[in-house]
């Protein structure tokens, strides 16, 4: 009976087909992953390769505005001396490449992988000396929060708001919200002064001062530090006053109506 049935169909069972398909997919996907992994391992192993890789990426994605040798054109500035910090800030936050011309480059999902950003940064840093990517030890948030808060109020709060909520500037420009921004990007923005933000170099705010400011921002980001449970955005008297205006006055009005209404 069994051999007869086999001859009759002349086909593999559907289960075997599915198994074969799975093996084929795993083989191609696995080998591709293996190949790309070994390729990126090679690039990180050799800085020269990283710079070459970055140059290729730069020429393919950035050169139309910044020029083939990053010398700058009418459409984009010269990048000699901006350093790895500027590239990491602009590209890893998605500000570069710009989606469209506007008052300022806005944050969007990054267009490159971390390895590609590192390659671009290595390339631009190789053109001329400039600020580098900050050391991890400055980004831990273990600095002096009190000092950081004072420095933030003096140097940053007028544009970014005392709670780091951001604010408007002139002609469509704005200082962005600092909540949830990577500490490295905050540090890089201070060092490089992206777009209309002024530069706060290490002689103005020392690396420790910058670490303190980052600590302050991480402290106010942490919701558990709000003693009132709901921090209402931490914006101070405006949002808190509005909350009281609506809910406290609203309930007083409601109680007054109830007091004078006749019972059923």
């Amino acid at each position: 009976m069994a051999p007869h049935r086999k001859n009759r169909t002349g086909r593999r069972s559907p289960v075997v087909s599915a198994m074969l398909l799975l093996v084929g997919l795993l083989a191609t996907g696995g080998s591709y992953a293996l190949f790309t992994a070994s390729a990126s391992a090679e690039t990180t192993a050799h800085v020269d390769n990283l710079i070459d890789e970055g140059q290729k990426l730069f020429q393919a994605n950035c050169a139309s505005c910044h020029g083939l040798a990053a010398q700058g054109t009418d459409a984009g500035p010269n990048l000699h001396g901006v350093g790895a910090a500027a590239v990491d800030f602009q590209v890893a936050t998605g500000r570069m490449p710009m989606a469209a011309s506007g008052p300022q480059a806005e944050e969007k999902p990054p267009q490159f992988t971390e390895e590609q950003v590192a390659a671009l940064a290595a390339y631009v840093a190789s053109l001329a000396p400039g600020p580098g990517i900050p050391d991890e030890s400055l980004l831990t948030g273990n600095g002096d929060v009190t000092n950081g808060a004072e420095l933030f109020r003096i140097n940053c709060a007028m544009c970014h708001n005392v709670a780091g909520a951001g604010g408007a500037l002139t002609e469509g420009k704005f200082a962005p919200d600092l909540k949830g921004v990577e500490p490295a990007h905050i540090y890089e923005a201070m060092v490089t002064g992206p777009q209309n933000m002024p530069v706060f170099n290490d002689l103005n705010l020392t690396p420790e001062d910058k670490a303190d400011i980052i600590s302050y921002l991480m402290f106010i980001d942490d919701k558990s530090n709000s003693p009132g449970i709901i921090d209402l955005g931490g914006l101070g008297p405006v949002s808190e006053g509005l909350f009281v205006w609506i809910f406290a006055l609203g309930s007083i009005v409601g109680i007054t109506v109830w007091l004078t209404a006749k019972s059923n």
């Binding site: 420095l151 002064g193 002024p198 530069v199 103005n204």
Partner: peptide, 16 residues
């Protein structure tokens, strides 16, 4: 706030 004096060379282009 700390009252450290400022050298002219500290003030790089674009600094405030």
């Amino acid at each position: 706030p700390d009252g450290r004096p400022i050298k002219a060379s500290d003030v790089t282009l674009g600094s405030v």
